[in-house]
Design a protein around this nucleic acid. Structure first.
Lengths: 214, 214
DNA sequence: CACAGATAGTAGCGATACGAAACTAACTGG
DNA sequence: CCAGTTAGTTTCGTATCGCTACTATCTGTG
């Protein structure tokens, strides 16, 4: 391939990126981060035997209801988490229920509220989550780098969520509502319940530096 | 709020997250990363005076054509970059041209190819890019953390892109086609052209650990 | 108890994103 | 000259997603 096949003359190169301040490293990193997310979600979401070709929104919902604790598995909480409207969230949930990946049950104490739980089929489906490729890539990092990366991303998420007026959705282990009395159990002052060890790693709407219901 | 208002009995808590292996840190970081991207793109993309309410895909395209070098500003290159089809990329470009944010010109050497350039209006529009909130949050990090974060994200992007059969799209300064002879200019063996300093910071389709045209 | 206001969830509408496939035009190699 | 490839567009069907309106339920106050 010779120079003649290239579109721009050398003289043209002066104008094309001129007048443009050199992109700062932070801006560039932000672009790469969005690009990374796009690569995970967009590229070739084809179905296979154990991967039923869910849309990005459906994967997000399935992941959410697999990870959220029992106070947070409602359509409304998911809509807040995902920075969308309740209507949109309701549709996504409905579609997943129709596939048998989620199931709905009534809240005995509040007739308005619905409890959404992931089904065994839903858990099996999560094994084919396209996001796991990213998880594996992160897992391949040396442990100190991986830990630092996770901390940074968490902090950025919190910053952005605050700026977008979305709730922060942290883990109970970092929540100031929680009182770690014993080794295996923790008292949550917000929900007035005793949390098991598995609860501690789950997402919670009531996560708070800022108390929302106290 | 008392315990009675809470939906699940303590006994139910044993089943809801049981049978679920504790989510590993890498998986959790991957989820947070996608969540972060969602917060940037999804939440309240309302229009204001200098921000014309573009869709996420349109923002991505506008950013791409602002940053890509002169060999990479084509609809096809953008479609590869964004892990989408040429048809979709064509539509997004057309819409931005209709808004006057991009402009098209013919490639003299190849009648099939189109050159897409960002207009002054497009550059002005980028000032209102919702992604800048993320850029600012990253810029607020201490410099060593920021640099490490950027490196990690770049590496992850490259890994994922390779796995998705998408091109890697790096900067010329990291490309092995490039031969830094002088301080201000670099010879690119791939395109047989002399690159200016501003070219070096731009995205290139021909970026290569793997030579695609050599 | 009555009632106003807030909240959980759903339904329908419209605009749009996106991928798949078909198509045209132009380039490339023999 | 001609088969094969590549750049780009168009069309179409599906799904996303925000918005608005609506119902049902809960909560607080007098």
């Amino acid at each position: 391939m010779t120079d003649a096949t290239r579109p721009a003359s050398p003289a043209a190169s002066a104008t094309e990126t001129a007048g443009n301040p050199p992109i700062c490293a932070a801006h560039e990193a932000a672009e790469q981060l969005l690009h990374l997310a796009r690569l995970v979600q967009g590229g070739a979401t084809s179905a296979s035997e154990n991967r039923p070709a869910l849309t990005p929104a459906q994967w997000t919902a399935l992941r959410y209801f697999a990870r959220a604790n029992r106070f947070s598995r409602t359509p409304s909480a998911f809509s807040e988490f995902n920075a969308t409207t309740r209507g949109t969230a309701s549709q996504v949930v409905k579609s997943l229920i129709g596939m048998g990946l989620l199931q709905r049950s009534m809240n005995q104490a509040d007739g308005r509220s619905a409890l959404i739980d992931i089904t065994p089929a839903g858990r099996a489906c999560l094994q084919g989550d396209p996001m796991t490729t990213l998880g594996e890539a992160i897992a391949a990092l040396p442990p100190p780098l991986r830990a630092a990366l996770g901390q940074r991303i968490s902090a950025l998420t919190a910053t952005l969520a605050r700026r977008k007026n979305a709730p922060v959705f942290g883990n109970c282990r970092d929540c100031r509502h929680c009182d770690s009395a014993a080794d295996n159990a923790t008292w949550c002052h917000c929900t007035q319940t005793l949390l098991s060890a598995s609860d501690m790693g789950a997402l919670c709407v009531d996560f708070a530096p800022v108390a929302r219901r106290a």
